[in-house]
Amino acid sequence: MSSNHSASGEETKRHKVEGPRKHIVAFVMSLALTIIAFAAVAAGEINTTFTYIILVGMAIIQVFIQMAFWMHMKDRGHLFPKIAIFTGVLVVFSAVITALYWVWW
């Protein structure tokens, strides 16, 4: 947001450069989510299905955080990157379901 050229308003002589804070926050959150996932498995006393749900949940949240902040997908002008990645994800979902169905039913 701060990184965009502002077309209107007065001439911005100095562009705002984003600070490292939000990236460090993203790092700490990724770290926390990773530790939760490993701890859930290391504890080993939760039932399997519930552990799977925790693991996949933590992974999806972490990936969203990293793509939004580190890969700048939350910034303006990232419609095509979103289309590209989500089209890929759509194919991935159908591939996973197809492979499971193909092998197991």
Partner: peptide, 13 residues
Amino acid sequence: LGAETVLFGTLFS
């Protein structure tokens, strides 16, 4: 990267 997603996704599947 969209294509890479598909590559890794199929290996995952």
